[in-house]
Amino acid sequence: MTEVTQPALTIDALGKKCPIPIIMLAEQINHVPLNAVVSVLADDPAAYTDVPAWCRLKSHRHVGSYELPGGGWAIHVRRNY
């Protein structure tokens, strides 16, 4: 269970269409310390693909995507630099 770190910051992007969740994530990732986790709450299906793709492009780490009971996902990203 070392993987599921408590997020240091939760970004509520529920109801928002891509690219807005990604823009919010890019703006706020530097608000957490190095190696901390940001959780993006999103329900646009595009975010499910786009947050991990953003991590790959920006060399941050996609930790995992967890389904939310009300629909959508909590997508966890670890700040790498």
């Binding site: 269409k17 891509c18 690219p19 990604i22 646009d44 299906p45 595009a46 693909t49 786009d50 991990p52 793709a53 953003w54 790959r56 492009l57």
Partner: peptide, 21 residues
């Protein structure tokens, strides 16, 4: 997805795991 008739992004881009927006 915002340019398609569906709410989902292209299944091709999804399957590749690349940016869809």
């Amino acid at each position: 997805s915002c340019t398609a008739s569906t709410l989902r992004p292209s299944h091709v881009l999804e399957a590749m795991g690349v940016l869809t927006h």
